[in-house]
Amino acid sequence: MKIHTEAGERHVLAVTVDNEAGILAKITGLFSARGYNIESLTVADISADHALSRITIVTSGPPAVIDQIIAQLDRLVPVHSVTDLADGGAHVEREIALVKVAGSGDKRIEALRMADVFRAKVVDTTLSSFIFEITGTSDKVDRFIALMRECGLVEVGRTGVVAIARGSEAV
């Protein structure tokens, strides 16, 4: 017998929650307990009184599973709202990566040239290394990192995706 899995589509969820102890464990535990995917997850406090946090979750699944994820998140007591950013039309997604590249000679020059093409900033340098800061969609960050592998990539740190809907309305 083989175990079958269904193909899914990528969704970005914005979840507003009470900024309380254990909330992240509650959210991530829900995903692991019910077998949902987390491709990336970011969380930070977003209100002036530090009472609310916004969690941005990139997940994937068939439409029925995405609906379930939203309903399951929404019924958690500390969850205020769940928005599927793909649902509300266009949205903006950004991710930051810090990319450390070590080397000398042509590879070093090539790394700097490509960083310029990608509009990555140099935030630290030594005679034998750069740290680039790159901001963009996950795809763009992926492509930049792939190129840097050829130019002496030694370390990467990524934030995961934050996203917000276009237009004047709040979620």
């Binding site: 254990g22 509650k26 535990g29 829900l30 958690l76």
Partner: peptide, 14 residues
């Protein structure tokens, strides 16, 4: 206790 019961309660508190 709150960790163990997080996913078998409707809600929990410490």
């Amino acid at each position: 206790t709150v960790g163990i019961t997080r996913h078998c309660t409707k809600h929990n508190y410490l």
